[in-house]
Design a protein around this nucleic acid. Structure first.
Length: 265
DNA sequence: AAATCGTGGCC
DNA sequence: TGGCCAAGATT
């Protein structure tokens, strides 16, 4: 998929956390490219720094220590401990939640928020042997991703279809509708367009460059032409652009330098 | 604790 | 083609 080339280049450049930690955070964001959620790149960099400071440059194998790293929540801490270090951890991602919801609750989808009862169930199902538990976690996750999918599940290919509460109940539809996320015309869209400009810019981008058509400016910083045109095409209201820029500054995804915006140095 | 967050694949 | 959707962390 589209992640693979980015991942390979990332590990080629920064094989160890310390290699990433010595870079400016903006380099991580730039290398992240168009994978989305650029804050994840920022937090990955922050995690690399924390690993150097608190763990001697080695990724900790302990769930609680992983959980303390920036950007690492309960799922990621459990997944890293289990899949990277072979630990017996209760891994619960959205796929596993859906499999459990269907098999045991008879619901088409899990509840909107992860509950303590779900964690108890997953912990109870987890095999005792560490090695087996790792395979169990991977297997249930894959079952959810490939067979017990959110839409168009392939029940005919499911190895546990005969024990599925949801199937036994006649596959009732979801009891709630996942709320869609607006995109066109949102601040989020403007943020994305601004980030695309900043990733390609090799020098700080003055605020006025975001507010005018590139053609009207009579100049362009090298490498920003295409995304700048895309940003202008959005025709965002000035206050919306301001909100997006302010939000990016607040999130640490951009900073002001010599009168312009750039990725964090 | 409900809202926010980027992007591309899919139909 | 364009609307819908994914998915975990943070605040």
């Amino acid at each position: 998929m589209r992640v693979l080339p980015v991942w390979e280049e990332w590990l080629r450049r920064w094989p160890e956390p310390a290699d990433l930690a010595r870079e400016p955070a903006g380099e991580a964001v730039r290398s992240w490219g168009r994978l989305g959620y650029p804050r994840r790149a920022l937090r990955l960099h922050a995690a690399a720094v924390a690993i150097g400071q608190d763990h001697g440059g080695k990724v900790p194998a302990d769930y609680t220590e992983l959980l303390a790293l920036p950007g690492v929540g309960s799922y990621t801490a459990a997944a890293v401990a289990a899949f990277a270090f072979g630990r017996r951890e209760t891994v619960v991602d959205t796929n596993i939640r859906r499999v459990h919801a269907r098999l045991f609750s008879g619901a088409a989808l899990p509840s909107p928020a992860l509950t303590a009862a779900e964690m108890r169930l997953a912990a109870q199902l987890l095999p005792d042997d560490a090695g087996t538990s790792v395979r169990w976690n991977a297997a249930v996750m894959e079952l959810g991703a490939l067979v017990c999918r959110a839409r168009a599940p392939k029940c005919s290919a499911c190895p546990v279809r005969d024990r599925c509460s949801w199937r036994a109940a006649g596959e009732p539809p979801p009891s709630y509708v996942p709320k869609g996320q607006a995109w066109h015309g949102t601040d989020r869209q403007v943020r994305g367009a601004v980030m695309a400009v900043l990733r390609l810019a090799d020098s700080p981008v003055p605020a006025e460059m975001f507010q005018q058509a590139p053609a009207d400016l009579g100049f362009e910083p090298s490498g920003t032409g295409v995304p700048l045109a895309a940003l202008h095409r959005l025709n965002s209201a000035p206050e919306q652009l301001e909100r997006a820029l302010a939000g990016l500054l607040e999130d640490g995804l951009a900073e002001l330098h010599q009168g312009g915006y750039r990725l964090p140095g």
